[in-house]
């Protein structure tokens, strides 16, 4: 198992390198340049060259990339061009907001989808299942940005029960206040995943209940509810672990949009601002960071799967 984890972590290095090269190239392909912000009418060519020199923007793409990589390897992600502060500091400052939003939405997804999926599976093809399935279809097909704006209109503007955005009320600094601000964005962000997990758990429940081991459990005189929670539930949830690992990518992307709609001060919003200002170091920093979250999320999911399923555990030991 340890060997497996070490192997996976080593495997990360080339992957991160490839991702960084690609995102660097794509950035260069976009029109505009970070120093456009500093340009003024009537600047001389010399002055522009000097500005480029100052921000390390002259030289070929390869040279610029090498310069960036050298610094990253030393733990320096560069300095934001528009904000004039270290990228690591900017990300570290915004990170708790994003992680708490992602965590909350993941928690909501899991907490809601397990009972919904189980109930739907148990009541297969009966009215209860039909209702839950219809809701999940909506959850899967409605785009999050649309439901985000609609929920702002309904809950924040019409009903006034939640704030329209932000993380704190003015001059208030309390957990309760933050949680209150988090309700709308976290719910909207979780909607899609809740629906997908519910569908998975429903179909897993149906197929697991038809397994022979359930009949064995019945013939031991085990109570129906105990069979459901002690035998079926675990086997139902195993595939969901992998699904969650894969969906972390979706959460990163989703939070990018949701953070902007709800003015949530997380790294998604930071990156959006950076893209607008062609702030290369920040964009690169964000890309590398979300890539890392994604890969680590997948790794954690794989390891968790192995912990939960003895069949996988054994396979890993053999590798």
């Amino acid at each position: 198992m340890k060997k497996y984890i070490v192997k996976r972590v080593i495997g990360l290095i080339p992957l991160l390198l490839v991702v960084s090269i690609f995102s660097f190239l794509i950035l260069q392909a976009a029109p505009g340049s970070p120093i456009d912000n500093y340009m003024q009418p009537g600047m001389t060519e010399d002055r522009i060259e000097a500005l480029k020199e100052e921000y390390g923007l002259n030289g070929s793409i390869a040279e610029q990339y090498w310069y960036w990589l050298k610094h990253v390897l030393q733990g320096d992600m560069g300095t934001s061009i528009s904000k004039n502060r270290p990228v690591t500091e900017l990300i570290a400052e915004r990170l708790p907001a994003t992680v708490s939003l992602m965590g909350a939405s993941l928690l909501i997804s899991i907490v809601c989808s397990i009972p919904l999926g189980l109930i739907a599976g148990l009541h297969k093809d009966r009215p209860m299942d039909k209702v839950i399935s219809t809701i999940t279809y909506f959850g899967i097909s409605i785009p999050p940005f649309w439901i985000a704006m609609i929920s702002v209109i309904i809950f924040a503007i019409k009903l006034r029960c939640f704030p329209t955005g932000g993380m704190h009320s003015l001059d208030v600094e309390s957990t309760a206040d933050t949680l209150w601000h988090m309700v709308l964005p976290a719910c909207v962000l979780s909607l899609n995943h809740t629906a997908v997990y519910t569908k998975y758990i429903r179909s897993n429940t149906i197929s697991q209940l038809e397994e022979d081991y359930v009949v064995t459990a019945v013939s031991k005189g085990t109570n129906k509810n105990i069979i459901l929670f002690c035998h079926v539930l675990k086997n139902c949830l195993l595939p969901i672990i992998t699904l969650i690992g894969m969906n972390i990518a979706g959460l990163v992307c989703g939070s990018f949009i949701i953070e902007n709609i709800f003015s949530w001060p997380g790294i998604g919003r930071l990156c959006m601002e950076a893209v607008g200002g062609r702030d290369y170091p920040v964009i690169m920093g964000y890309t590398m960071f979300s890539c890392l979250i994604l890969i680590v999320g997948n790794l954690v999911a794989d390891v968790l799967y192995a912990v939960a399923d003895p069949r996988i555990r054994e396979g890993m030991g053999r590798k």
Binding site: E211, D212, Y213, T216, S219, T222, H231, L238, P310, R311
Partner: peptide, 23 residues
């Protein structure tokens, strides 16, 4: 429930699928 297992028990054809794989 009280009868199954204590008065009357059953074994099946395919023991692999009849046992819970994760227990």
């Amino acid at each position: 429930e009280a009868y199954r297992g204590a008065t009357c028990s059953m074994i099946f054809q395919d023991a692999l699928t009849s046992l819970n794989p994760t227990m």
